[in-house]
């Protein structure tokens, strides 16, 4: 596992910082942070699958949508208690994960990405056409039971969930399993040639990714209290997830969290100056520049800076002595 004290301390500091934030910021900023927390969860989910194994998912809203819709429908239409609805939603999303996994047995690369995009589009059409009495059709649903009241509680819930997901995925990916999943992304044939079942590894990645997406989707719908298919199955939402993971640093778990916060605040602070869709132009440019300058993402920039700082401190010490 190779866990070091510094890792432990950094996690502790990160968790402490995240829990202290409501003391210092406004309610409006908290609401932005809540969105950032959920975006971080979705980006981690994407990273566990696509960042590791190289199977680029353009259909993550499909998985998130299954989680959100299942829990919303169960609680609102069938009066299922929320404690049962969320696990059921996660289980349904994992079934969805298997569905997305099936094409990955035969196709990869951009073809796989396109198929997953089709899943998202299909889901968008289906929720509007099939049983609109359940799904709310084009308008979606409102008045879904919420778990928390007020921004502060919503923040604590979302940040706890995000930290739990981030920490557990980070630990999981530091095991040999993480190495094996990365190996799948680098060279599938060589993984098979090392005596490992690629199918089993891929299935695990899809299930884990779906688990996280379903969890995030279900909690998100019970935070918002509503569901809007046009916002959920939206290409902008999809790209925000992917860009968050990529500019933060794919295949690192912490990178997508950093990326999610960076993106959310970027979009939020641009809002007063550019209220319209122009914001996405700026954010696209920044993502592009970042990605060209450092494909390994913000986390690589930070760790290089950190090393330079430590290296600088070290040389100062040696020159002093």
């Amino acid at each position: 596992m190779n866990l070091r004290l510094t890792h432990f301390l950094m996690w502790l500091a990160f968790i402490a910082l995240m829990f202290a934030i409501p003391e210092f910021v406004s309610k409006g900023t908290l609401r932005t942070l809540i969105f950032a927390n959920f975006l971080a969860i979705f980006a981690i989910s994407w990273d566990v699958l696509s960042g590791r194994t190289g199977y680029i998912s353009f259909g993550h809203p499909f998985l998130i949508g299954i989680g959100a819709y299942t829990s919303a429908i169960l609680t609102k239409r069938f009066d299922v208690p929320i404690e049962l609805a969320i696990p059921a939603a996660v289980a349904m999303t994992m079934v969805g994960g298997v569905v997305v996994f099936l094409p990955a047995l035969r196709i990869k690369g951009s073809y796989f990405a396109l198929v997953t995009l089709a899943f998202m589009e299909l889901m968008y059409q289906l929720v509007q056409v099939i049983r609109p009495d359940l799904t709310g059709g084009t308008r979606g649903m409102s008045g879904v039971q919420t778990l928390t009241r007020g921004a502060v509680n919503g923040y604590y819930l979302s940040v706890s969930l995000m930290l739990a997901v981030a920490l557990s995925m980070w630990l999981l990916m530091r095991t040999q399993l993480g190495t094996a999943l990365s190996a799948v992304g680098m060279n599938e044939e060589s993984v098979r040639g090392s005596g490992l079942s690629v199918t089993k590894l891929k299935l695990f990645a899809f299930l884990t990714s779906a688990f996280v997406a379903g969890l995030g989707g279900a909690f998100y719908v019970h935070y918002l209290g509503s569901i809007a298919p046009r916002a959920l199955f939206d290409i902008n939402f999809l790209f925000t997830i992917i860009v968050a993971a990529l500019i933060g640093g794919a295949s690192t778990i912490i990178g997508p969290v950093i990326g999610a916060f960076f993106l959310t605040f970027l979009l939020e602070y641009l809002r007063p100056y550019l209220p319209g869709a122009e914001r996405y132009f700026i954010y696209g440019m920044i993502a592009l520049l970042l990605y060209m300058y450092e494909p390994k993402g913000l986390i690589a920039i930070f760790s290089k800076g950190w090393q330079r700082l430590r290296g600088g401190a070290g040389s100062e010490q040696s020159s002093a002595s």
């Binding site: 596992m1 095991t175 399993l177 990365s182 040639g193 090392s194």
Partner: peptide
């Protein structure tokens, strides 16, 4: 066909791994 972003030891690690998800997680 090496694993390009892994060092020599990690490349060998993949060959040594048990073909079992649970053991991959628990075994060092």
């Amino acid at each position: 066909r090496p694993f390009t972003d892994m060092n020599v030891l990690e490349n060998i690690r993949v060959g040594l791994m048990p073909n079992n998800i649970w053991q991959m997680i628990t075994a060092k």
